[in-house]
Structures are given as structure tokens and as C-alpha cells.
Design a protein around this nucleic acid. Structure first.
Length: 447
RNA sequence: UCCUCGGUAGCUCAAUCGGCAGAGCAUCCGGCUGUUAACCGGACGGUUGUUGGUUCGAGUCCAACCCGGGGAGCCA
């Protein structure tokens, strides 16, 4: 028996006879010669079957292989510059071939397909190399997230998914029946994170989160993953310091470890290589001025083919505004001190300027939009109670949250990072539905 | 919810002014010793999203509905 090796490790077996087990990704041939592209989950390798090197039965078995048939091939590993694949450059000179199962006609051909068809066949689409690459990068991003937080003193304390009420009171929630009582799927773990920091200092929660909004854009899912760090004794400026270290670590680790995947995705990594501390920081006032100046000059929003729309101070940015702003910088950009009225009730207001709050969003370059949202949290119990009243929220539901300000309150801050938007940005994908194995979009719940 | 574009073979698309529903790919058969989404020859493949209307005649025109894409709002 020859050893079974994985394609990602083939480079260590040049000149040896090995067995690959996997699936037929593509096939082409020329009479007495067959080129089988075999994938095994770790990569794609070309296996060359020459009639003179194998038994007549094995040669016939090779010819009979259909796309996505499962197989085992044994042969000699060769370095070969002509060999396609991932990572490519190595091929298997086949001596034995076993068809494990001949696949029925496979619906996803190497030609182009529409989104509707591919989404209906998501369970098969995942085998395609671009989807494979995106999922591998996603996994590395998640590793990098945990690695950085675990290595910087953050304790992973996960927060409930079933919650009694809207944490922020604004967005639409999925309602479930909790033994006769209405309950909701969490849209953030943040309020619970705030309880946790008073026990553990620095924490993060990492899990799925749910938004029932009728959002139908390339940046939205109904179910998505979010990591939310929260830090005691941390103000807004320190929060931005943390975020830029954190984001830079994630990007740099992907560049180091996912070169083959990013190449499959045809990602131009020059933008990503610049993602190192520090990131530009602009005040909301300044951002509004930039937008209105661009609007007055009739500048176009990159990629939209329409002029930058003017805006009033006090409004939140629209999607074209965010895209314009992000395009003015060659790194992710922090926009801080948003108007209090467009942000959540728990954000700390700026001393001497109550109309703005100590909040910050991070806008990714290249039109990927907001990837983090965070703030310094309100720490005074009386101010917080007034904010709860001002937002018409039920005081009794926030009793425990107010308690946090009564027993050892301190300045504290936190943010949430959307995993799918981060994956889309790093992979250069044009839609978040390709950043998670089985996306839940407004129109798709199956498979 | 609103704006906008679309739905024709398993897939991607074409079909002139309303006049015989057509290609490529996939699949099957045959050929080829270096293919990169190979190539060459042949075969198979249709309730034109649904319902109704106009017409001698509808894929094409009209109405309603269904499904999907892109965008807006909201957000990560």
C-alpha cells in the first residue's frame, strides 16, 4: 500500500509513489493520454494517465470517470511547471486508478452559471474552487480573530442567542415562542458583554446574530456571524487603537497563510498589504464637510456612476456616502463622533457637545462599507436612565443593565466586527452570500 | 416596502416588424500522447414562469400574479 497524502502536502513527496483520494474536478484528454484534475479538499492536482503506464482496465476506468466522480489514484509525484491546479506545479504520473463511484451527470459545469441556479445548488457549489477558497480564507480569518483576542487577554464569554427584547430597539427581530412567551433571536451580545467585563475585564463573544430586516443588498444576510470585544477602562481613542491592531493582524495573517486561496480568487492584494496601523481617523463633522464639498463639485461615487448626494449635518451616511468616504483613503478609515440621534441609546455623549456621541465606525476600502461599529458606553447611571426614557424603552427591562453603573462603574468601550463583510473584503468578493457555506438571505433559506 | 432589470433545452444565452423555437456547454457515441473552460465529427435534448386577453397567428403585444438579480432604506 502506498501512503495516502493530501494535495497541499504533495510538494514534500516529489519522486515518491503516493495515493490521492478525492473527486474528479475536470477532465480532458487526447486519445492515449488523460488529464484528470483531482481535488481532495486541500487542493487540486492534475493526474496524468498515459495508456502505456496503466492496465487496460484502469485506463478504461479513467475514461469512464464523470465530473465529481470519487476516485483513488496512485502514481509518481513530479514537479511539472505545466501542471494546473491549486497550488499547481506538481502532478501525479498515474500507475493505478480506481473509480470509487461514477457520479451522475453533474449540474454545475465549468461554464458560467446564474446566481439563482448556483444558490439552489449551494451544497454542490461549495466544491467549486472559488467557493472552496473563500471558505478556507473565512476559517483563517476566524482563527486570526480568536488568536489575537485570546493572546491579548480577552476572555471568550458567549452571550445568549434567545433574548427577551430588542437590545437596541430599532431593527427588526426574528420572534420565537419561548414556552408561550415571545422571545427574539439576538441581534447583538453587547449588553451582556458589558455585564461580563465587570467580571472579567476584557471579553468577547463570537456567534451568529440575526436581523429580520428586509435588506436585499450585497452586504446583508439575515443570519451572520459577529465577534464583539468589550473592554473595561477603555475610552474611544483606546478603542480605535485596539481595532486597528486587531484588523491589521487579521489581514496580515490571511496574506501570509492564504496566498493560494487569494490567487484562486484573483484577489489583487496590494490594498491589503497596506493594512497596518495606524488607520486614518476623521470626525463626523469633517466627513460631512468632505461629502458636501464633493457634492458641490459634482464628483461621482466610485463604482456607482452617480454624483455624490449632498447631506445635512445630523443625518446618518447613506451607502453612497460611505463608499465615497472610504475611497478617499488607501486604508480602512475610522469615522467617529456620529450624531447622538442616529446611534443607539447606550453610547456616551461627548462632554460639552451632547449632540454627538463617542462612537466609531470603521469603513473598509474598495466599497466594502462598514465592517465594525463601536463606541464608548455611557457610564453614569442617571444619564443612562435618562437615555432609556428618551428612547421610550421600558425601564424595568434594563434594571440589570443600570445595575452595572451602580456597582463600580467605569469608562468602557466595545465594538462588533461582521465576519462576512470582512471575508468579502479580504477575498474581494462582490456579495456576502459567498462568504458563508449556507447563507440565509432575504430570498434563500434552502438548502 | 420602494425603484429597476430579468424569467426560452440540465446550464449560459439567441430568436429581426407578431410569421417553421436555435446555438454553445453538459450528457452519450467515435477520433487524437501535454491538455489548461482543449479540439474535430455525430446523437440526445422544449408545457418559452403562471393565468387570462388581443390577433388568422404570440417567446415577442396587453393585464394580473409568481419567482429571481441589482439598487435604496436599515444595519455588521
Amino acid at each position: 500500500m502506498t501512503p495516502v497524502v493530501s494535495i497541499e502536502n504533495l510538494k514534500d513527496h516529489v519522486g515518491e509513489e503516493v495515493t490521492l483520494q478525492g473527486w474528479l474536478y475536470r477532465k480532458t484528454g487526447k486519445g492515449k493520454l488523460q488529464f484528470l484534475q483531482v481535488r481532495d479538499g486541500t487542493g487540486i492536482c492534475q493526474a496524468v494517465v498515459f495508456k502505456g503506464n496503466v492496465s487496460p482496465e484502469d485506463f478504461a476506468a479513467g475514461k469512464s470517470l464523470t465530473q465529481e466522480s470519487s476516485l483513488r489514484v496512485t502514481g509518481l509525484v513530479k514537479e511539472e511547471s505545466r501542471a494546473p491546479g491549486v497550488p499547481g506545479g506538481y502532478e501525479l504520473d498515474v500507475r493505478e486508478l480506481e473509480a470509487v463511484q461514477l457520479a451522475e451527470p453533474y449540474p454545475i459545469s465549468p461554464k458560467e452559471h446564474g446566481v439563482e441556479f448556483l444558490m439552489a445548488n449551494r451544497h454542490l457549489w461549495l466544491r467549486s474552487s472559488r467557493q472552496w477558497a473563500a471558505m478556507r480564507v473565512r476559517a483563517v480569518i476566524i482563527q486570526a480573530i480568536r488568536e489575537w483576542l485570546d493572546g491579548h487577554g480577552y476572555l471568550n464569554v458567549d452571550t445568549p442567542i434567545i433574548t427577551p427584547a430588542a437590545a437596541e430597539g430599532t431593527t427588526t427581530l426574528f420572534e420565537i415562542d419561548y414556552h408561550g412567551e415571545p422571545a427574539y433571536l439576538a441581534q447583538t451580545g453587547q449588553l451582556y458583554n458589558e455585564a461580563n467585563i465587570f467580571a472579567f475585564g476584557k471579553v468577547y463573544c463570537f456567534g451568529p446574530t440575526f436581523r429580520a430586516e428586509k435588506s436585499k443588498t450585497r452586504r446583508h444576510l439575515q443570519e451572520f456571524w459577529m465577534v464583539e470585544p468589550e473592554i473595561a477602562f477603555c475610552d474611544l481613542d483606546q478603542l480605535m487603537d485596539i481595532e486597528e491592531q486587531f484588523i491589521s493582524h487579521i489581514v496580515q495573517r490571511c496574506l501570509r497563510e492564504c496566498a493560494a486561496e487569494l490567487q484562486v480568487l484573483e484577489r489583487d492584494t496590494t490594498h491589503l498589504e497596506r493594512v497596518t496601523p495606524s488607520f486614518p481617523r476623521i470626525h463626523y463633522d469633517e466627513a460631512v464637510a468632505m461629502i458636501n464639498e464633493a457634492a458641490a463639485k459634482g464628483e461621482l461615487v466610485p463604482g456607482y456612476d452617480e454624483p455624490v448626494p449632498p447631506m445635512e449635518w445630523g443625518d446618518d451616511f447613506g451607502s453612497p456616502h460611505e463608499t465615497y468616504l472610504a475611497a478617499q483613503f488607501d486604508k480602512p478609515v475610522f469615522v467617529h463622533h456620529y450624531p447622538t440621534q442616529v446611534k443607539a441609546f447606550y453610547m456616551e455623549s461627548e462632554p460639552g457637545r451632547p449632540e454627538v456621541c463617542r462612537s466609531v465606525d470603521l469603513l473598509a476600502p474598495e466599497g466594502y462599507g462598514e465592517i465594525t461599529g463601536g463606541s464608548e458606553r455611557m457610564s453614569d447611571p442617571d444619564k443612562l436612565l435618562a437615555a432609556i426614557h428618551a428612547h421610550d424603552l421600558p425601564e424595568e427591562a434594563y434594571g440589570w443593565y443600570l445595575d452595572l453603573r451602580r456597582y463600580g462603574s467605569t469608562v468602557h468601550s466595545g465594538f462588533g466586527l461582521g465576519v462576512e463583510r470582512t471575508v468579502a473584503w479580504i477575498c474581494g468578493l462582490d456579495h456576502v452570500r459567498e462568504t458563508i457555506a449556507f447563507p440565509r438571505t432575504l430570498t434563500t433559506m434552502r438548502p
